[in-house]
């Protein structure tokens, strides 16, 4: 465990906590993409099924449980608790366009043709595009709640930090994980526009508004 990965995981955790706090505080899930949350739930469930047969560390197990349960809790908040606040009419990105290519990529690029390896690869590719419905929604509405913006920012930081983590691990351990590395580059690229607007607007205390 190096500092990059640890900070990345903390940032990932923070993003989820921010989202839950926002929904609970405002008693509303307005501005949050249900589709993105659903995709993340799918990412975690398909990636972390190894929790039952592959032990890494207490930290690893704890985080896996946290990510799966907290994301399902967000789905519950959006679908049941604060359902009326969520407008499906602005959450229109077709998730098939993310799920289908991820499935194809998982079948082509993986660490071996076992169910576990294919699901793992699928989850990695899926994660790289899972933020798209949220970014799409942001683009449609043109502005967002400060907390939603911080949520996306924390999520982007998490992905960005995994890149130096892998470079560090390559140098110190000779460890190479090309699938996750490539998928993460794609994912970070998706955030670049968002980061730019975040930097030019939010950092200067302005409201998050798309130009």
């Amino acid at each position: 465990m190096n500092i990059f990965r640890f900070l990345a995981d903390l940032s990932h955790m923070a993003s989820i906590v921010i989202l839950i706090l926002q929904i609970r505080k405002t008693k509303s899930a307005a501005g949050v993409s249900y589709k993105t949350q659903f995709l993340y739930a799918l990412v975690f469930v398909t990636r972390y099924i190894d929790i039952f047969f592959h032990y890494v560390s207490l930290y690893n197990t704890f985080m896996k449980i946290f990510f799966v349960t907290s994301t399902i809790y967000i789905l519950y908040l959006m679908r049941v608790q604060y359902k009326p606040s969520h407008d499906p009419n602005i959450d229109t990105f077709r998730i098939e366009y993310i799920i289908a290519p991820s499935a194809v990529l998982a079948l082509i690029i993986n660490h071996g043709y076992t169910l576990y390896e294919i699901l793992w690869s699928f989850s990695v590719w899926l994660e790289s595009g899972a933020i798209l419905p949220q970014l799409f929604m942001l683009q449609r509405t043109g502005e967002a709640e400060t907390l939603t913006v911080h949520y996306i920012f924390a999520l982007g930081i998490y992905r960005l930090l995994y890149i130096p983590n892998w470079i560090y691990r390559y140098v110190t351990e000779g460890r190479v994980e090309p699938i996750a590395f490539l998928a993460s580059l794609i994912q970070t690229a998706l955030y670049s526009d968002f980061f730019y607007i975040y930097y030019t607007k939010v950092m200067q205390g302005k409201k998050f508004e798309l130009p």
């Binding site: 995981d9 990932h12 190894d50 690893n60 660490h111 390896e117 793992w120 995994y162």
Partner: peptide, 10 residues
């Protein structure tokens, strides 16, 4: 490299 080591991250 063992497969197990490839999935020690989140």
């Amino acid at each position: 490299q063992k497969i197990e080591d490839e999935h020690d991250e989140l």
